[in-house]
Amino acid sequence: MELSSFDFLKQQDLPAGALYMVATPIGNMGDITLRALHVLNSVDGIACEDTRHSASLLQHFGIHKKCVALHEHNEIAGAQNIIQHLSQNERWAYISDAGTPGVSDPGARLVNAVQKAGFRIIPVPGASAVSSVISASGSVMLSSEGRFQFLGFWPNKAKERGALIQDMRSSSKTSIFFESPHQIRDTLITLSKELEPKRQVLVGRELTKKFEQLVTLSAADIPKWLEKAESLKGEFVILVAGRQTSSDKAPEYSALLLWANALSPHLGSKEIAAVLSQALGITKKEAYQVALDAKDQNEGQ
């Protein structure tokens, strides 16, 4: 069925003088959205992280538009070029090499410059390695009640790696980061040594592609898995489960109430719950109940 047969797309509002941040597939061409194709066919020009890389995508879908390169090395200068086009009431799109622009890809400086120049930014959502791996993470996300922190690409410098590992060890949120095939073995070995043996780690490889792999391991089992791993090629997304507070280590209710009472004159119940949950590793539900109890206690005095 041809794209033109989808009448609802013709009803989409496409304001002029706007920049469209368009998500593209991270591996499987079928993950392009109908809206993305409609926008890319409708704009006056497309800024690309790499015009050579994007050419195959655009050619595959029969999209023939003026393309300019806009990457991390020319993003500020490239943004001024886009702003000039927008000032002429044109529509422009930006696409990165894969996935959603601005997620560990260029795009943030471009958006900032365009917004400051007074022009509208319109996101066109689609594929993202982060949201894709979360949807298939199961138990690794359960303990954090859906909360996570995205760390981008794993750093090369030892000092920065040490700081992130310490953050992951102490955080109750699931940690998510990208890693290259060249460093993945060393990174996983480091996690196996630095994390508690039972801490869960999800390894996602080549998401949406032919050799996609999703494996959930305990930190202690990582070395054994690496010995048998058939391949460590491709792009990796790693999830590290948040720190769990076992019942025998959880703070006593009386201690929690002391914390909540100290915060009560200065914060609302939701804010108190957020502080207790983050600082003491208890669930939001437990923390909120303690906050309510503290408020009731103070109002009764």
Rank of each mutant, 00 (worst) to 15 (best):
V114Y: 07
Q115G: 11
K116N: 15
A117L: 07
G118M: 02
G118T: 03
F119E: 14
R120S: 14
R120Y: 11
I121P: 02
V124R: 01
G126W: 03
A127D: 10
S128A: 04
S128Y: 10
A129M: 06
V133S: 00
I134L: 07
S135T: 11
S137A: 10
M141V: 08
S143H: 09
S143A: 12
S144P: 00
G146C: 00
R147F: 14
Q149R: 14
L151C: 00
G152Q: 07
W154P: 00
W154G: 03
N156H: 13
K157P: 12
A158W: 04
K159R: 14
E160M: 12
G162S: 08
G162N: 12
G162F: 08
A163K: 14
D167Y: 15
S171P: 07
T174Q: 01
S175G: 02
S175N: 07
I176P: 01
I176M: 05
F177A: 10
S180I: 05
P181L: 01
P181A: 01
Q183C: 13
I184S: 06
R185I: 07
D186Y: 10
I189T: 15
I189V: 12
I189A: 13
L191H: 09
S192N: 08
K193S: 14
K193W: 09
K193E: 14
E196S: 12
P197W: 10
K198I: 09
R199S: 00
V201C: 03
V201R: 01
R205Q: 09
R205F: 07
R205A: 07
E206N: 00
T208F: 03
K209Y: 06
K209I: 03
K210E: 13
K210W: 10
K210Q: 13
K210L: 11
F211G: 06
E212A: 01
L217K: 12
S218H: 13
A219Q: 08
D221A: 13
D221Y: 02
P223K: 12
K224I: 14
K224G: 14
W225M: 14
L226K: 10
A229N: 11
E230L: 05
E230V: 09
E230Y: 04
L232H: 09
K233T: 12
G234F: 06
G234C: 03
E235Q: 09
V237M: 10
I238C: 00
I238R: 01
L239T: 05
V240N: 05
V240T: 03
G242T: 05
R243A: 05
R243F: 01
Q244M: 12
S246E: 15
S246N: 13
D248H: 08
D248T: 10
D248Y: 08
K249Y: 11
A250D: 03
E252F: 04
Y253K: 15
Y253R: 15
S254P: 12
